[in-house]
Computed example of a mutant assay.
Amino acid sequence: MYEEALPIAGRPEKHHVQTTFNYWDDPGDGSKPTPIVIGGGRISNRRPHLPHDFVVTDISGDEDKYTLDGHGFQYCRHKSLEKDFVDEHAIQTLYYDECRQLLKEVTGASRVYIFNHKVRRGPTQWHHLGFSNLANRGPVTRTHVDQSYDGAELRLRWEFPEKADELVKRRYQIINVWRPIATILKDPIATADSTSVPDDDLVAADMTEDGFQGEQWVVRHNPAHRWYYKNQLTPDEVLLIKCFDSNTSVARRSLHSAFEDAAHRDKEPRQSIELVLGSASSTFLLVSLRQPDIDKLRGSDHPTDIIAMYHPR
């Protein structure tokens, strides 16, 4: 069971952070961003980025004001029986089942299929570790969205080649479920309010992962972007990040990135999991097989189906 509004013991003191976010260094000549290639135990990422100053707003105590459809992200209190995230079988059974139920409760969906997860326990500059750097995944300190609009359809068609022509007519989403394995101090994760990021700031970029040729967004700097995080996120909380939504009347995607908080620069590397789920995160591809509007289906006789695909790593 999750709680939309996290309980508040008094009004927590805000910890807003002055920091930098790394944005794609647009050469201005119309050339595409350098492709990323993931496979064979390593990732190659040579895209040039430049740091830009921002203040990240701590939303502690105000979590219920931010929603997937309103802002592109949402915080939920959600305890897991899985604590260590070192046993792949436990992750793919117990934790997957928990996240399926979570997504059903949050969205009103009837089914969930998971297609990916990543556990991050590595150092901040893990990209530069050379071969087998995927074994030391750390935080991603570059602003991005995991799938572009076209990239989301590419993923759908890759996973469901025989059903895709019908599925693309329905509402579908990709949502990342991000959970700390230990309370986050160093390199917390921030998300940007979707309404502060126009589509013109997003640039399609190729990314190949284990044979799948996908497409994500890199981001041009815009000082109007509004960044948010929750200070000291705990393992009993999850951050839902919308990577794509085919419904154009709601928030369709949220930029996200790790960032440095100088107050915790010397702490141990963070741990998390994503179900794309140390920090913990997950990714889900959600497909409405009946009605195009999930919100209208809550409490109806036509529950929404969520499809999320999992590939073993």
Rank of each mutant, 00 (worst) to 15 (best):
P35H: 04
F73H: 05
H302A: 10
I43Y: 02
Q271I: 09
R290P: 03
V86S: 11
F284T: 13
E105F: 02
P198H: 04
R111T: 15
D301L: 08
D295A: 10
S288L: 12
A135K: 11
G138D: 11
K104Y: 07
H52S: 10
N45T: 01
T20F: 01
F115M: 15
P33I: 00
D62H: 14
A224R: 11
S300M: 01
G61C: 06
W24D: 00
L102M: 14
H225D: 12
S249G: 09
L103D: 07
I184N: 01
Q147D: 00
V203S: 03
K169Q: 15
L286T: 13
H128W: 00
V112Q: 15
K267S: 12
V119G: 10
I175Q: 05
S281N: 11
T208E: 09
P35G: 03
M309V: 10
H311E: 04
N45K: 03
Q147N: 04
V197H: 11
F131P: 10
Y95L: 05
A9Y: 06
I273R: 05
N45G: 02
V197L: 06
I8L: 14
V177F: 05
N231C: 15
E3K: 11
A9M: 08
A205C: 09
G138K: 10
I114K: 05
S196V: 02
K242H: 04
G138L: 08
